[in-house]
Design a protein around this nucleic acid. Sequence first.
DNA 1: TTCTAGTTGCAAATGATTTGCATTTAGTAT
DNA 2: ATACTAAATGCAAATCATTTGCAACTAGAA
Lengths: 143, 143
Amino acid sequence: MKENKIQINFKKILNNAGLKNTLPRLTVLKILSETKHPKTTKDIFNKLKKNDIDLVTLYRTLSSFEEKKIIKRVDLQKDAVYYELNTDHHHHIICTNCDKVADFVDENHEKLITKALAQVKNFKSITSHSFDLFGICNSCSAK
Amino acid sequence: MKENKIQINFKKILNNAGLKNTLPRLTVLKILSETKHPKTTKDIFNKLKKNDIDLVTLYRTLSSFEEKKIIKRVDLQKDAVYYELNTDHHHHIICTNCDKVADFVDENHEKLITKALAQVKNFKSITSHSFDLFGICNSCSAK
DNA sequence: TTCTAGTTGCAAATGATTTGCATTTAGTAT
DNA sequence: ATACTAAATGCAAATCATTTGCAACTAGAA
């Protein structure tokens, strides 16, 4: 079954990261993979069955996942920490009115990075970057 | 004198924003303009002479400045809120080791935005964007 | 000079995140 | 299978950033 296969993949992810295979961790991975959109700690906690997993455990889980690069933080300019699975590299378009998020990919920022490096003298290599867009989505602007 | 001229400009900024001209506000503007690099609330508070200005007032000042677009938040992926004066539009290169920040300008992201919009169906206009780079600066990588 | 809305400082509240510690458990070694 | 150990968990309490309530104080308009 598909359900089962996913579980196995989650276990593999944890093993590769050197993290023990526990219910809280599998549950968080499951929640994060349910929809690919970024979620806050609170979002995730609310999806847990009541008292299923302690909030402290959730914080520790997210923290270890981030350290192991299983997830990454996303800045949606919202005064809250958002996380998403660290799978394919993509960027976001965020509706500043309703918080809807759409994803897009971009292969051309390499050129921009090269140009940027030419402008500064203290850096010569870049390990990561942010590139997200903010606007009003069509349904909000229709109102 | 230059000092004086700056003061006058600060007053103009406050007037234009409809904010009263007070010592806490002028002081914060002065601190933010001393070096152009982004600063946290704590950074700014530490630069105030002891007990000069209440921390609560600082929070309120920054909050009103942000609302009036006198300053803007910058995400340096550092678990702290950074602010900088909202003057020219530019981007940052941040050293993930020592937090050094270099600025650069870029005029070409418009094309990337157009391409991004072509990929999604829910958005047709963009009001702002993030584009910052993260890496290790030369002096840190020399070590 | 007077008046009032806007601003400030202090104390206390709130909310998110972290820490300490005793208990439990996954995965390894026997 | 069993025993062992480091890692992981849950609970209570601490910490830290930020916000709120309120009384006292001003900047700037009248």
